[in-house]
Design a protein around this nucleic acid. Structure first.
Lengths: 196, 196
DNA sequence: CCTACCGATCGGTAGG
DNA sequence: CCTACCGATCGGTAGG
């Protein structure tokens, strides 16, 4: 009877994935049921399986889409000729923008990846490890070039990635902070600190 | 038949809570079953209910124990007479130590609180909001006293709390980073930045 | 796209 | 502390 709306939202499968990301984010992957997802889309649960293979396939699609997008972007940035500091700033800004523009999917990739099943779980962790390694190399280069203070690259990676990930706690319009100000303040904090 | 071991681990209830934190951390609250918890403790599932009221009670106990501990500590630190910078440093170090010493419970409080049911969910969020507010006030004081750069206090709180929370991704012995070095590097990064 | 339905698993209780 | 068991809900399939 009811049909999944697709107007300017891509294929039906894409619409399902988008709604799934929203649901997995607000209820967590395990607690979200396929019946709830179906209801949110206006159909009965079994109808979903005409478009998707399984619940876990939805999670996989979301996690790898996000992981691959970040990997692609750090390659583009590091392939450029900007200074190390400028590249780090670009990376931080990209993280913040991704978090603001693809909130549901980034949130799910950050929080629900542990419910991936092998061998995909291992693949996902490898994507993440390689990303962190690439960022650590960039920081090492910055230290060698004397653009950055001498510090442990892995702790710096941890600090930066954790900070930008925290944007998920930021609520729009709260305290009158614009996205631009959030970006500028956080970049400045991570690069220059807050001590006077 | 089997009995829950309590030797130097506190009461049986405390042993159950500790194992629950471990299980909720590795499998998530929803995916972890009471049967698994019972098995990890060497008893049958119904036996658990002689010591605890329900699964959700376990989550509540963990979340509020952690939340109250942090609230207590920031009160102690802010009640002292150290400079603002020294107090912020103390707070950062306390977060890192809590994450290292009470990993399972801190992790669960950070990740699984959303499965609390009302009105406890609201109580927990209030505890967290008040904590963030207290830290923001401290930062505002630091700016007024010219100890800190002029920056948005809420963004600074977000950056600091997110960074320390990220310690959960840090694996012991990895890359030969000692806890002391981790603490020092992260405090230095957040206070002074990494740019040369 | 639906109705009807399956086997598995869940949190928790009764009763001893 | 156990065995036995309950009603509810889950992901997914059959068949049209």
């Amino acid at each position: 009877m009811a049909k999944i709306l697709t107007s300017k939202n891509g294929t039906k499968k894409e619409v399902i994935i988008q709604k799934a990301a929203q649901l997995f984010k607000s209820k967590s992957y395990t607690a979200a049921s396929m019946r709830e997802l179906a209801e949110a889309l206006g159909v009965e649960a079994p109808s979903l399986y005409n478009h998707i293979g399984s619940k876990s396939e939805l999670l996989q699609t979301i996690c790898f889409k996000v992981g691959n997008r970040f990997t692609e972007q750090i390659g583009i940035i590091r392939g450029g000729s900007a200074t190390v500091i400028a590249q780090i700033e670009e990376i931080i800004r990209f993280h913040i923008q991704m978090m603001l523009e693809n909130f549901d999917e980034v949130y799910v990739a950050n929080h629900e990846w542990k419910h991936l099943s092998e061998p995909l779980l291992n693949d996902f962790l490898n994507i993440r490890r390689n990303y962190e390694k690439s960022l650590a190399e960039l920081i090492e280069t910055g230290i060698e070039k004397n653009e950055l203070k001498k510090t442990n690259p892995y702790v710096a990676v941890l600090t930066i990635l954790s900070a930008v990930r925290g944007i998920e706690f930021w609520h729009r319009n709260k305290k009158n902070i614009s996205p631009q100000m959030l970006e500028d303040d956080m970049v400045n904090h991570l690069l220059n600190g807050i001590a006077q």
